[in-house]
Amino acid sequence: MGMSRRDFLRGGALAAAGVALTGRPGEASADAPQTRIKGLKSSTTICPYCAVGCGLLVHTKDGKIVNIEGDPQHPINHGSLCSKGSSLFQVAVNENRLQKVMYRAPGSDKFEEKSWDWAMDRIALRLKETRDKNFKAKEINKKDNKEYVVNRTEGMAFFGGAGLDNEECYLWSKFSRAMGVGMLEHQARL
């Protein structure tokens, strides 16, 4: 489209100026002339791959993502991205993404589609059954033969969190411990 890399970056920087102060979703700068992002909405995000924490701009039109690129104003990456970060668009727009709740019955050879309501009710039942059946209020310690309160369920394990947001990690921790789950672990142990 007859545009040098420098022009392109300048356009990006101008567009970014539209979100620079807040980073919240807003109009990509209408002043950005002749760029492919004119008239698009823009918001900032942080890369979901490694923990460098590079900034990106997400451009949308009519509620759909049309472009994702490095945020030139971000002090860590100044708009640069690696091959993974540059591919974030394909995480958002990808036919392989899961779109439905899927269920596989014991012994079955296939998944079947289910509603959230159905699955969540059934999962809640499993969580409760397993917790109740395997709940240990007290146990005898083998070393001193004394009884201790432990209030813990041994029946289930909860894994994961390095891909969640902080607020999600927090609620995951809070929920896990309220359930009495001792076996809470995630990627940091690996």
Binding site: G155, M156, A157, F159, G160, A162, G163
Partner: peptide, 10 residues
């Protein structure tokens, strides 16, 4: 010894 497992992105 474990009945159930929940994996959040793991």
């Amino acid at each position: 010894e474990v009945e159930g497992l929940v994996c959040m992105g793991m």
